[in-house]
Design a binder for these strands. Structure first.
Lengths: 172, 172
DNA sequence: GCAGATAGTTTAGTTAGTCAACTATTTGAC
DNA sequence: GTCAAATAGTTGACTAACTAAACTATCTGC
């Protein structure tokens, strides 16, 4: 079969993924900037709000998992977590099973503020509320699949999952 | 006991939109951080790469539209655009129809580098390549709808909703 | 022609991110 | 048990990015 138009499938694949990357970043950044003033009315700075958003109201979360969800270095969450702690929204508790780990748990006040954030997120940003419930489900499913690929890639880059025997010749 | 996972909960509207906001930001930031080293091999710093990504290979783009797509203040694009210009990737041309406007156009070298970026985006990030072509189409459609809502919100916040008569539609 | 608005840049001050070093703790080979 | 290596988290120095105001140049409407 001879194609008359020079629009090969590979070209549209490249174009689609590029538009996808652009839209993903634009919508994400726009939504974050839109939400920041709302969160500021709750007494939260942008970094603290993002940290509280990714914490779990019901379970303790180690600092490194928070950093992983925020896609940043653990050293970058120390200051926002300090502020959240001094505001009485979260607590730092040493994990008795591994005393290196600081488990982050929400206080009752933290859960109230987190619930207020949730209400804002669920009702305010036009980028999210413009979608129907079905579209939100679909978008969430696709982003969950994408996020799973991100975490799988991170895990494959970290050989920590497989405890290595005593290796004196670390080449990297 | 420290847990690293979230219990799957009944998806109320609030819970779904909160998970959606989290995933949107995590996937977006992760993908950007994943791509940065690849773009650095093309001689691009992160800010310059994002600017070049959102420019158009075939049409002149005013600085304010670039800032709009990057969701930042126009003053924040001056420095990255300076670097792209001194690297010979883009040109700043005064629009003869409105001499206040600096139209950003790609050079041949800029188009080559932009094409190399496109190839990287289309083949490298696990967050995007893990999706099937159909899923990519769906995700793009939903993000386009969300982005349209963002732009509509911005337009409604600006009292100058009536552009000049000869201003052609560049709202993308 | 002139007041006011807009596009873009500059500047100063603030914030956020990077990276190496450091403490404390755990792990596992011997 | 001992000790080298690895990990969790923090600190500090440095760099990059964002913010908001002032500023130039240009355009629009009256």
């Amino acid at each position: 079969m001879v194609t008359r138009h020079r629009e090969p499938e590979a070209h549209s694949q490249v174009a689609r993924l590029n538009e996808l990357a652009q839209r993903l970043m634009s919508v994400s950044v726009w939504t974050g900037r839109y939400l920041d003033p709302h969160f500021a009315q709750l007494g939260l700075d942008p970094a603290g709000a993002r940290a509280l958003l990714h914490l779990d109201p019901d379970h303790a979360v180690p600092t490194r998992y928070l950093a992983e969800r925020l896609c940043c270095d653990p050293s970058n969450v120390t200051a926002p977590v300090d502020r959240l702690e001094s505001s009485g929204l979260i607590r730092r508790q040493t994990d008795p099973e591994d005393r290196r780990v600081k488990a982050l748990t929400m206080t009752a006040k933290g859960r109230r503020v987190r619930a207020a954030m949730a209400e804002i997120i669920a009702t305010q940003p036009p980028s999210l509320t413009t979608l129907t419930a079905e579209e939100q489900e679909t978008l969430l499913r696709l982003l969950n699949k994408a996020w799973a690929a991100c975490q799988a890639h991170d895990a494959s880059r970290r050989p920590s999952a497989t405890p290595s025997p005593r290796n004196r010749n670390r080449s990297d």
